[in-house]
Structure formats: C-alpha cells, structure tokens
Design a protein around this nucleic acid. Structure first.
Lengths: 194, 194
DNA sequence: CTCATATTAGTACCAAGTGCTAATAGCGGG
DNA sequence: CCCGCTATTAGCACTTGGTACTAATATGAG
C-alpha cells in the first residue's frame, strides 16, 4: 500500500497553500483517502479549517487595503511627496526580489521603485517615461530597506516634459541613481513617438 | 416607534461595508432588531451572508497576490537564446501591467523584460546590471505582445563586463531600446542547478 | 502473531446561515 | 371600531464545512 503519510501531508500542505479555498472533501478525493484522514492530517500539521483560512486571507487583505489603495500602482511605499518637486519612498527587499544564488536584488525592482516614484512625483497622474539612464552602484540584498528620493530637476510644462532624478540608498549609501525624462499626458494626447 | 426602515438599511449597508466580518446576530444587537429583520434587510439589499462576503474579499486578494508575484523571476518568456550572443523573449501585456487610466504599460515592465533578457543572455547566471540607458519610444497597451531582442554588442571577459543592447517591438514597430552594461559575477561557479 | 500506528466510519454538535410559514405589532383610513 | 397593510418577529427544517469524540478495521513491522 501507499506508505506515504509524510508525503501526503507534505502534498497536502502544498495543495492548501496553493489553493486555500479547497474543502476537506475535495482534498479527500484528491489524495484518495477519507475525509477523516484529511482532518487528522490537518490537525497534525496545525492547518486551520477552510473558513478560518479564508478569513485569514480576507483579514490580511482588508488590513492591507487601507494601505495599498491610496498609492495603488506604486512599487514601494511613498512616505512623503511634494508634487512637482520631490518625493520619497521606501521599498523593503524581500526574498522574492532577489536572485536565489547570491541574494542580490534584481535590477528591475530598483528600477520599478524609482520609476514609480518618478511617475508619482509628476503632478499629472498620466505621466509616461520617455528616456532614462540608470546606474546600479552597489548590490542590494534581501532584508535591506531601499530609500528612494526623487527630485524634479527640470520642468518644461510647455513641452509637457520634465526631468526627474532618483537616488536610492541603503543606510545612507547610494545604491542606485536614475534620471528619467517624463512626458505629461495631459488630455488625450496620443502617440508619444518622440 | 422607530420608523426608520430605510435609515436602518442604509446604516446596515454602511456598517457591513465598513466591517464585512460582522454576523447577523451582531448586527441585530447593533440595530436592536431581530436577526430575522437583519436577514430580510440583507435580502432586500442583496447583501450576501458573512461567509460569502469574507470569501469575496479573500478571493480578491488571493488573485491580486498571484498577479503581483510574477515580477519575480524572468519577466517574459524566453523563446530563443544563444549564450553570450543574443536572445529573444516575448511578453504579453495584460491589464495588470498597465495604468488604469489610459491602458498604457508601465515602464518598469518593459524594463523588467529587457533586463531579465540581458541577464539571461550572459553566460553567467550571476550577472548584475551596472548601468543602463533606456528609451521608451512608443506606448504599449494591454493586449499587445512585446518581442524583445537582446544582443551582446561588446564583451570584455577579462574585466567581467559586457554590453547588451535590447530592442523591443510590437508588430515590427520599435517601442523600447535599452543598453545594459553587465557585470559577471564569476567566482567559482558552484552547482549549477535552477 | 501481536502490537502500534494509520485509516475509516459514525455520531453528536456548532456557526452562520437559507427558505419557508406563521404569528404578531402598529398604525392609518374609512 | 374594525380592516387591511406593512414591518417585525418567531419557529422549524435543512445546508456547509467543519470540531470532538469513540469505535472499528487495516496494515505493516518486529
């Protein structure tokens, strides 16, 4: 017979993690054991019942929602902003942001934080990035907090352009510098083909 | 007597919106009516029961979570790769990648695709981006497929440096150009799984 | 074979409901 | 004052997805 109580329990854990909305009965079909066995497994693994799992997820989002809504599409949390002048955001580097091998953050996360901030600092919400130059000066690793400071260094409202410089640092040490040429999409002006 | 059926229902709506985790019984205390009245009210207002409300919130977050995860590893699907020479990937722009207002893809996704590809084309997996210059030539919208072509244009193995140029296009039309200066983290390459 | 563990079955019970029927309250109009 | 109407309340059966517990049965290892 299938001896794999351990395997089943591992698979069970994975399965529930992947889809917390699954009932014991569905699981019992999936693993071809009785519902009771699933229940025993859950007890041993200290996995709560469906409703508690769902509630947990819901509570989490509900709490997050308050935080994430105002900033919506921004990577990193905006701490301070002075429209058309400067802005500041922080981004905590977590394991999912880094290369597995050396724990160094992938460049596009730093870029995303800086670019989001550059977009946010513009007085228009519909700002697009036209050009940018980046320097990745020091590697950033998981667990570090990156503070990005954006500054509008040149503004040409008549041409719908502005230049934003973003400097990101970890504990006072500069890790990234980017300059962004931004385009303001006032009204429906399409085709920013440059 | 309190005539306010309408007021109560309005208050009920607000109350549930503010805290979806409240049971009918709690509501019946809050409004000093019977549980049945609360139920009738919910029916009239088409407000689902507690569990369904919670589930709804949970599903919403869960989907968001899955969506926001893929900014993890390689962005875009690598179609063809010739190490140290060139590589090609495609990236389908989906609703979650664009600004809600004008459906234009956020810059960091294009960057992420290009940067990921630049990293991938390097013979080392532990390649870091040092500098880069980007041009966002045309807006890309949801539903479009971005094809990125990376080419190693200069290689200095002795200095552990290489320059990669990435050109991204949608239907033959160039939308993005980026040049990346990459740094090889050679070290002594260990077990190369992944 | 025997013993422990694993699994299954079955029962009672719970929370938070739905769905339904029926009783009652309150009040306004004729 | 009674009629009729809506609003409210009560009560019961049933549902989901469980918990808690007991008991029976497999199954495998020593």
């Amino acid at each position: 017979m299938k001896r794999p109580k351990k395997q089943r329990q591992q698979a069970l854990k994975d399965s529930i993690k992947e889809n917390p909305f699954v009932t014991d009965e569905e699981l019992s079909n999936e693993f071809d054991v009785s519902v009771q066995t699933i229940r025993l497994d859950r007890m041993e693994l200290a996995i709560p019942e469906l409703r508690e799992r769902i509630k947990h997820v819901a509570v989490k989002t509900f709490e997050d929602e308050v935080k994430s809504l105002p900033i919506d599409e921004v990577i990193g949390e905006i701490i301070d902003i002075e429209l058309d002048k400067k802005a500041l955001s922080i981004f905590d580097v977590k394991p999912e942001h880094v290369f597995q091998r050396n724990k160094i953050a992938r460049g596009h996360h730093l870029f995303a934080q800086a670019n989001s901030l550059a977009v946010a600092v513009m007085n228009e919400e519909l700002a697009l990035t036209v050009k940018s130059e980046l320097q990745f000066l020091r590697p950033v690793t998981a667990g570090q907090r990156v503070v990005a400071k954006a500054e509008v260094i040149e503004s040409h409202p008549e041409k719908n352009r502005a230049f934003v410089k973003v400097v990101s640092s970890v504990e006072q040490l500069t890790v990234f510098i980017g300059t962004f040429e931004m385009y303001r999409m006032t009204e429906q002006s399409e085709g920013d083909t440059e």
